[in-house]
Amino acid sequence: MKYLYFPGCSLKGTGKAYEESLLAVFGALGVELQELEDWNCCGATAYMSVDETKSYALAGRILALAERERLDVVAPCSACYLVLNKTQKSLQEHPELHRKVTGALQAAGLDYKGTVKVRHPLDVLMNDVGLDAIKQKITSPMAGHKFAPYYGCQIVRPYATFDDQHNPVTMDQILQASGAECVEYPHKTRCCGGSLTGTVPEVGLRLAYILIKEAKQRGAEAIVTVCPLCQFNLDGYQDAIAKKYERVDLPILYFTQILGLALGLPAADLGFKRGIISAEAVLAGR
């Protein structure tokens, strides 16, 4: 199994732990990830607010580069995953936009036909690798650990391709396959505040606080997420939350970190040291 890997800016910056654990887990499961050559920023949500066509063209360049490799693209960052999927759909549905974007790409010698499939790691693990194959490779199950599975918004909305929009379960099943328990978490797909945590903290902090507090109340020892921005918001602002509301101290981890531990990978290879809130309890005895 081989895929093209589109990390996006966050996985090279604040979300390094995600990249480290993802690469380790996919390697352990025998899935090859080939990083897309000379990839650029997808534009995320911010660029869409400035220039629509250019924003689609940025994503267009990524898709055009990927198309050459004839491989499915794995996009672990929720914003990248959404932007790439949205671009494909928008170009398909709006001929005028399609003309402009492909025209601009051609001006730079790039060709885009619309044949690339953009996948999320959860999708690949569940539907290509399969739960049984994962279970077979679990060597040190996460028995006794309880997590709140947190999907955030953009991987199931607005395009629910591999899971339910209101109640996604893919990550729950993967965490359960790794031996852990999932708490019933009503905020699974609730917004973390996105960039608002940085720009309008009084708004963003409240959203983050609600998410963490609820997970804690339901007995989770950590929130497990699939998105670098969610992880950053929930992990990075707990000091500010303490100042405004109360001390919460809940580790925020990537699902690949938990799966990695269960697969018997050393914690040091899974980016655990990058968490601002320490995950010692999760690592106890490992």
Partner: peptide, 24 residues
Amino acid sequence: TGRMSFIPEQIKRKRELRKILAAL
């Protein structure tokens, strides 16, 4: 935690990207 970097990551073919934006 090693998550901050003051050196920007850059792509190699910046000209290619700028051509796209210029065309638009």
